[in-house]
């Protein structure tokens, strides 16, 4: 059975002028120990999805209006706040894009890493400290005994991201949500952080949802890819299949806009702009930017369907992509 099953999750933000559906019927499964990569451009609903999974949508203006989030056999949407809080601290953890702002500037880094152990496990300060130092060593922070008492402003971005990971991993969660964990870091540090995440995953057997707009990051780490566009998943597939034979024109567009050293050096951008979520029609939200769209794409609703085993797409005419593949 899957560790996490999300069915038809809908999240919307209500403003005085409009209702913005940031997640419109998102569904996916994630098995224990596996990694799901979620890609999509800014505003496609990736971060909202992560927050919705944890029940951390600021309400108002945000509301989760429909769907199920079944984690470990329990629907998180129907847990009371106290139980959900314990799930957040001990079973699901999250790390953020900007490590510089993810740690509280007024407390020592080490105290923040071991705080979860004190809150959730009731460890004594000295036991928590010992455990915290062990965690810091595990994520590759040098001389943790000394650095335990240092403050975030004394640390570099890469070290802070390691501290964030240690903080999230302190209570040994079964699922780690990583929301653009490497975006704010430079390339060499990115690789180290990704390698660290993969290593920790192998050691602890946790599942991971890795959100990124960087296809390369996803390719390196994920078992499955989910491509998000306009608040919905438009393609879900095993990573190799999604990269080799994308079955949705948006995925193909993303792949073609990755710079490559080989070839003539020209990029093929996706024309147009992401749609205004408040004014989506009934049809495919990508139709206006799609090279293979038919008039009926703009009117006929699309849903995810399985066209190869394990390969899902929300496109009416995936076969039309065959001729366009790079």
């Amino acid at each position: 059975m899957a560790l996490l099953e999300v069915r038809g999750l809908c999240t919307e933000f209500r403003t005085p002028d409009a209702v913005i559906p940031a997640n419109a019927g998102v569904s996916f499964n994630l098995d224990a120990g596996r990694t799901l990569g979620i890609v999509g451009e800014s505003g496609s609903g990736k971060s909202v999805l992560c927050r919705a999974l944890l029940g951390l949508i600021q309400s108002p203006p945000g509301f989760v209006t429909a769907g199920e989030i079944v984690f470990d056999g329990r629907d998180l949407r129907h847990l009371d706040e106290t139980t959900l809080r314990r799930v957040r601290g001990t079973a699901i953890a999250m790390i953020f894009q900007n490590p510089m702002s993810g740690l509280n500037p007024v407390w020592p880094v080490g105290d923040q890493i071991s705080e979860g152990l004190r809150v959730h496990r009731g460890l004594s300060p000295s036991a928590a400290r010992a455990r915290g130092i062990a965690m810091m060593r595990q994520v590759g922070i040098p001389s943790p005994e000394v650095r335990y008492d240092e403050y975030p402003h004394q640390w570099s971005g890469g070290m802070l991201q390691r501290a964030m990971i240690a903080m999230a991993m302190a209570c040994e969660p079964k699922l780690l949500l990583a929301d653009e964990p490497t975006t704010a870091l430079d390339v060499t540090i990115q690789d180290q952080i990704l390698a660290l995440l993969v290593e920790l995953q192998e050691r602890t057997g946790m599942a991971m949802i890795l959100v990124s707009h960087d296809m390369a990051v996803i390719a390196e780490t994920s078992d499955h890819v989910a491509v998000m566009y306009a608040g919905r998943m438009v393609e879900v597939a095993p990573t190799a299949a999604a990269f080799r034979t994308p079955r949705h024109p948006y995925t193909l567009g993303l792949l073609q806009s990755i710079p490559r050293a080989a070839g003539d050096g020209r990029l093929t951008p996706i024309p147009g702009q992401p749609p205004n979520l408040a004014r989506l029609g009934d049809g495919c939200p990508f139709a206006d930017r799609c090279a293979v769209a038919s008039p009926e794409c703009r009117t006929r609703p699309v849903a995810l369907r399985e066209i190869d085993p394990g390969h899902w797409t929300a496109c009416h005419f995936p076969e039309r992509l065959a001729g366009l593949q790079a």
Partner: peptide, 26 residues
Amino acid sequence: GKDYVLAARTLGYPTSRVVFRHAMPN
């Protein structure tokens, strides 16, 4: 709205702890 407050919430700390220990000093 800052990340460290969100981080404290994702780690499942009680609201009183998030407000008084984490946000208040700032």
